[in-house]
Structures are given as C-alpha cells and as structure tokens.
Design a protein around this nucleic acid. Structure first.
Length: 273
DNA sequence: GTCCAGGCATGCA
DNA sequence: TGCATGCATGGA
C-alpha cells in the first residue's frame, strides 16, 4: 500500500482486496451511506469520513495524516494481508464461488461499544431498519461532529435515558436491552477494554452475561468490534449456509472463520431464494 | 391480512 | 440440557 497526501486528501494506492461497496454495505457496519458520486460517507470513532474509489485508488477526502494513522488505517484493517487470507479460505469451493462474485469484503475494526449496541439492536430485525434506528439514535443523542452528522452516543449518554426514549426511536422490545447495557458499561460493571484483551472463550462468556446478548449477538460483536476474526456468527442466513457443511467448517477457515463467514453471508443473501 | 428480519429471555419438561 | 412461545416494528 502506498500512502500519498494531496492537498487535504489522503490517497491510497495499491490496496489489495478492498471493495467499498461490498464492505460498507454487507451488514457489518450500519453507518455508511453511498453518495450520488459513488463515494461513501460515514462515521466511526467520532470522526466523519468521505471515501471514494477512483481508478483503483482510494481517496479519503479532507482527511489529516493524523486521523488516517490513528483511525482509518486500523478501521479498514489496511495492514492485514487479505490476499493471503483469501487464498487460504478460498480453498473452500463455496467461499471461492462467493469471492468470484464478491471479492473485496473486509472485516472493519469498529468500536466495541458501537458494535455491541448495534448488534443488540440487530436481533430479529432487518438491515435497512437497523440502519434507520441507529441513525435516529445517533442524531438524537450523539455528538455533532460535522454539519448534520453525529457520532455514536456514549454509554454514559445512553445510560441517562429512559427505556421509553429508546422505544420512541423504534427499538421495540430491544429498548430495555440497550438501556440495561448502557447502564452496565456506564457504571463500570462491564469493561469493554478488558474484554478486548481476553481470550475468545472468556470474552464470549463476558458478553453472554449481558441481558439481551445471546450467542449470535456476542459473536457479531466479537468479530466486528473486538477483533476476533475466528468468530463465526450464525444467523438465519448462515443456518442455511451450514447445510452445505454437514461435516463442520473446513480446516482452511482456521483463524479466519469470520472473514469466510462474511463472504458466505453475503453470498447467501444474494443467491439463496 | 400474513410473513419475515444478522435472536433472546423465559418457562417448562 | 432442549424446546416452545412471546416479543416491537415496518416492509414485502
């Protein structure tokens, strides 16, 4: 990867295996919107970003080198050798088929807190509606980081609200889950930084202790927010995919089950039915 | 009107 | 331990 500075922009050249369309709209992050010019605008870590692919390069608009190094480099996981990983998991025929059609899906390194709340909201819900709820949640209680653009609200902020406030945003029965989760984190009983440093079994068990967090939500949070690439979340779509693996997951997924999962998830949503 | 969506808590066996 | 059921909401 080559990093260049051009006026106020950062330009990335020679980035392997990154499709913005696939990565930012495949159900792992819910805060990105495609713009009329083909670019993507979104927020993470209380920063706004507009990013566009042009002639194989990636242009990060109005981005300082500091923000790139401190946030986006890690967020897009740019230092990981995705080519090698894709070669490895592509030894599986179904993943190979998915990659032929949808090459360039990455697992973003989202903030643990945002990922955890987002996937609590995601349960028994569809992606379009999840995005709408999270957008309203941020607009109502997040910090304004650019005109009409809001960061993800802190646990302290959400903890100060009532269940009814979440219901008013359309969270439905998940309102009480988010409220209690915010309380646990805000008062320090649940320390997300500690969970990030645990081994995967301890981390999963810690998340499973939260009201409203089951195996699926825990695995999604671990994969998308806590950096555990070996997590393989199974939702209604992945249950159908698992019928293709009657003997369990293939050995070639080892260590990167989550990346394989995301290819299979995307493939299932577009190819089954 | 019915079914479904990146499920979970609860009660009961 | 495993299984049935209720749950909020909105789009198809």
């Amino acid at each position: 990867m080559i990093i260049e500075k051009s006026q106020n922009d950062i330009i990335l050249k020679d980035v392997k295996c990154l499709s913005l369309d696939l990565t930012l709209d495949c159900g792992e992050a819910f805060r990105w919107e495609k713009q009329a010019d083909g670019s993507w605008s979104g927020t993470a870590y209380n920063r706004f970003l507009n990013i566009k692919e042009e002639n194989g390069n990636f242009i990060l608009k109005n981005t300082s080198e500091k923000d790139f190094e401190e946030i986006w480099r890690n967020y897009f996981d740019l230092d990981r050798d995705y080519e090698a990983i894709c070669n490895q998991i592509g030894n599986d025929p179904l993943v190979a088929e998915a990659m032929q059609e949808y090459y360039g899906i990455r697992i973003l390194n989202q903030e643990p807190w945002e990922a955890l709340v987002s996937f609590v909201i995601s349960q028994q819900n569809n992606i379009k509606r999840i995005k709408g709820i999270i957008k309203r949640l941020c607009a109502a209680y997040g910090k304004e980081i650019a005109p009409n653009t809001y960061g993800f609200p802190s646990a302290e902020k959400l903890s100060s609200l009532y269940v009814e406030d979440f219901e008013a945003l359309g969270l439905g029965y998940r309102a009480k889950y988010v409220k209690r989760l915010a309380d646990e984190v805000a008062c320090g009983r649940l320390n997300l930084d500690e969970i990030k440093n645990m081994n995967i079994d301890d981390a999963r068990n810690a998340l499973l202790g939260i009201y409203g967090v089951g195996i699926k939500v825990a695995d999604c949070a671990l994969l998308f927010g806590f950096g555990f690439l070996e997590c393989f979340p199974v939702d209604v779509w992945m249950k159908r995919v698992l019928e293709y693996y009657p003997n369990g997951l293939p050995e070639c997924f080892k260590g990167y089950e989550g990346i394989a999962q995301q290819y299979l998830f995307h493939w299932a949503r577009n190819n089954l039915n």
